[in-house]
Amino acid sequence: MRKTSQYNPEDRNIRLYEAIFKLVLKGAGVIMVTLLVALLVTILWQSWPSIREYGIHFYTGRKWDPVFKEYSALPFILGTLATTLLSLVIAVPIAISLAIFSGFYVNSGFLASAIRTLVDLLAGIPSVIYGFWGLFILVPVIRKLELSIGIVPYGVGILTSSIILAIMIIPYAASIGRDVITMVPNDLKEAGLALGATPFEVVHRVVLPYAKSGLLSGVLLSFGRAIGETMAVTMVIGNANFIPGSIFDPANTLSSVIANEFAEATDPLYISNLVHLGLILFVTTTIIGFLGRAVIRRWSVNR
């Protein structure tokens, strides 16, 4: 015979289990908060020697040279800004047109799901494989380009990293953009079409003005993601610790210098400086992420 269990509401054990269960859930919540606070404290604590030693000079110096104990984040901040901004310049137009195409023109049917699968596939390829591919396929192409316009043919550098980064962030930006564009009310689009506007005019005069701030936050979130991207950039940026002069120069980003040097750093101050770079990364990506999500949240609540 199958054993049946009965529950007596007066049973003390059940009350106990119930209390334990709720305690476990709340405990998980408390641990989560503690974990994040501990994470932040660890990073701050470990970068403190570097902050104390270099202060503002860490952001104004021109060189990062561990051999002579000269440390400045400026070359990497500039390298990060150059690569990410250039990659946005490449990625944003493509991502927005992809978002318009799949959010407005074909939002159902075979083609729509094909595009969605394609975007998902691109988003699923690991960073290190993009870097590997870039190193063997894109670098020789860029090198030829550099030879043909008569500059030093490094092959690796800011331009190469930006192209790889752009390919990596297009799927992300496009899927946010598509969500934003699908949220534009159908009434508005249909009203536009019913008045005799062509689809292009509806996109231009109705959809884009309406979705403007949502799209902006998508760009912002992609920017944050591009800043933190490590492996692909590390493999194709050329790892040069000086302030880049042009987009064809090798450089280093905040994340790529950490990836390159952290395992080899032995001097405690050297490690602290690298953690300090991590702190800069953490703070900027968190602020950008907050801004992006705040804009998108306000946007979707107001509509």
Binding site: G29, M32, V33, L35, L36, L39, T42, I43, G224, I227, G228, E229, T230, S255, I258, A259, F262, L274, V275, G278, L281, F282, T285, T286, G289, R293
Partner: peptide, 20 residues
Amino acid sequence: AVRLCVEVLQGIPSIVIGIV
């Protein structure tokens, strides 16, 4: 507070997670 922490944790660059 937990939701905020999860959101922040999701946004932390992977290399920083490595440092931690």
